[in-house]
Nucleic acid binder design. Sequence first.
DNA 1: GCGACAG
DNA 2: ATCTTGTCGC
Length: 274
Amino acid sequence: MRPARPDLAPRPGLSRDEMESLQRRVAETAVFADDLPFDSAAVSLASPETEHQTLAEATALDADADSPPLVAGIDQSFLDDRALSAVVVLRGGEVVERAHVVSDLELPYIPGLLSFREGGPILDALAELDCDPDLLVFDGSGRIHFRQAGLATHLGVVCDAPSIGVAKSLLCGTPDEDVDGRPEGWRTPIRADDSVDAVGGHPAGSETTIGYAFQSRQYDSRPVVNPLYVSPGHRLSAATTVDLVSRLSGSYKLPEPTRLADAYADEAKAQYED
DNA sequence: GCGACAG
DNA sequence: ATCTTGTCGC
């Protein structure tokens, strides 16, 4: 898939101030409301065959009118100063395409500036795809970010595609309720706090919900599982974002697109280890 | 100055 | 993110 807004793409060579101002522009461009070219209820892990479709229809790279949306999971693994960016695309419960690329990293990890370290490599991996995903699921935050422009928001805006951020820990914001030891399916809003900047069109008062803590999985008499922190990337409301992550969750803590991309990133990594 | 911080 | 053995249980 091709960047719709290459002018907003994260470039590693910028100064810290330039990176932060670019993030403010990204946040102003982002749409934190549902603007989907498909019905969110059509997103599921159900095998297309059980949804009355032939395997040929389900795996065709050209999306025909009523086939389930293409959902891409993106994750990375690392080798010294290189990143392996992996993408796995699902249609229903079936993997229809995978792609990966290895790139040199130009920046260290800096909280709040993750997209400038990993964004370029990820866009390169997305460019390798033959298909055009309807939804992008990133490993990291979207709107749950100091300037409301985390990795999922930044890349969602650059691609102008609906996107979601799924993080394993909270970058900023405050959960409405205590998140410890909650049952499967439980969720609570993450509200903007003093560390979250207001953005034109996107206020950040303490009443603003920027994401959700979501307990996707909980096992019996096993170490307590922490919740996921999901947030809208682009063209999605916080409520629909949790709903979609819930629909994409299988038997594991991470939603299936992310889990598969994670496994693929590790699998492909072995081929580049010296 | 102090604390907090996705991957 | 990554470095890593064993251990419990379905």
